[in-house]
Amino acid sequence: MSGEAGPVFLQRRTYRRRRLKDAARLLPFLGAILFSVPLLWQGTPEAPTRTSSVMLYLFVVWAGLAGLSAVISRHLDDDQDDDTHQGDPPERP
């Protein structure tokens, strides 16, 4: 299906755009990993991990992800014609 060989070198803008798409695809995985980090904080019986610190961590990550997503999607906004002209390579989950 993706047998069509594209050009090896792309214009700088096109290249940037593709990397932005990659970033958009990878963002949920980054989020999943960051959200799972607190599971590693087992704490000890004497000093258990506090809910408040986990809460702070999670909300900071959360806000960071939303901000990152905003930056990425805003720049992806420019490439509307990219989809319609070339079509995306078939995506796989």
């Binding site: 958009a24 695809r25 989020g31 809460m55 992800l65 992806l76």
Partner: peptide, 24 residues
Amino acid sequence: GLEYLTIYLGPTLVMIGWWWTLRK
């Protein structure tokens, strides 16, 4: 405790991963 957050974290991941599924 914080378990209630999972109900929101799941949709957050889906939303920031919109390029995968929601767009399609």
